[in-house]
Amino acid sequence: MTQTSTLARGGAGTSAPTRRGRTRGSGLSPKIVPYVLLLPGLLVIAVLLLYPMYQMVEMSFHKVGLRQIKAINPAPADFVGLDNYNSVLGSPLFWSSLRNTVVFAAVTVALTLVLGTLVGLLLNRLGRKMSTFVVVGIMAAWATPPTAQAVVWKWLFDSDSGVVNWLLNLLPDGLSRLLFGRSDWTGQPWFNDTYTLYFVLIVAVVWASFPFIAVSVLAGLKSIPSELYEAAKMDGSGAVTTFRRITFPLLKPVFSVLVVLSIIWDFKVFTQLYLLAGGTTNRDAFNLSLWSYAEAFGGSAPKLGLGAAIAVVLTVILLLITLVYVRQIVKTEDDIR
């Protein structure tokens, strides 16, 4: 950690450029500058997202159907207090969906980050041509439209025509029996059972999201001055030590962002699950997103109040999980400065 403070983290406070800025007569008080810089982004978010978010929270305390949101002759929405929340938290599906969501997110986030980081490090070490070659390959995975992704994975794991069962059958019988306790994989169904379904989902989501981590890590690595590595080399530190003492501390802020965002995204996985599970017919396999969809938006009479309540609950859970961590990130950085 010592390096962090002495190295490029730099940023010794905020004073220098601002003070100079004032002397240079840009006309802006340094107190205002950050707000001016934030303004465009904040404006977009406030108008387009914050106000609708406020409305969403308000909806969650009302009974809202389409009649209530009509542009022409809307019906008034009844205030129902915490009814929507009671029916969310009181449903047995809430707990099974929450379990599926949390376990899935934990496994997927871990796998994605490890694989993504390793690939990012690998890309940094490869020659230029090879690196471009691999990076284009992983970009293709990332760029594949979600619907196509889910369907292709569904085909690959198809019980009859899937590549996976075909490959598993290619394994020598002895080895296959040793590893999985069986040798015949013909017609093995993957999408009936919640466990195997989620196994496929994890593979599919990790596959689609590790490129993002890899590219971000690569970008982080590219911004580390190479002198540091040369210095480490001269000190005779090995690859692991170098990673632990230079690469990781320098990438830590990037990692933190990636962890938090990965948790958020994997909590909300929808399209892939919806397609792999074949819609909403298998409720054992629900995660929170799919459940809220089935509960609130699936029917032709959407229960928007209930849907909003689920969304609020989901957001609060995510906040609780990430808040401690996020505060820590923001705080440590402040301390370093």
């Binding site: 340094p30 500058v33 950050p34 904040l42 997202l49 958020i264 928007l304 989901l314």
Partner: peptide
């Protein structure tokens, strides 16, 4: 810069990501 609401702003950005798009659709 260090300014008031800096941390709040950063966390706010994350909350924006957390809300399911479907729920925001109508508003």
């Amino acid at each position: 810069f260090r300014f008031r609401f800096r941390t709040s702003f950063l966390i706010l950005l994350l909350i924006v990501q957390m809300v399911p798009a479907e729920a925001l659709l109508i508003p």
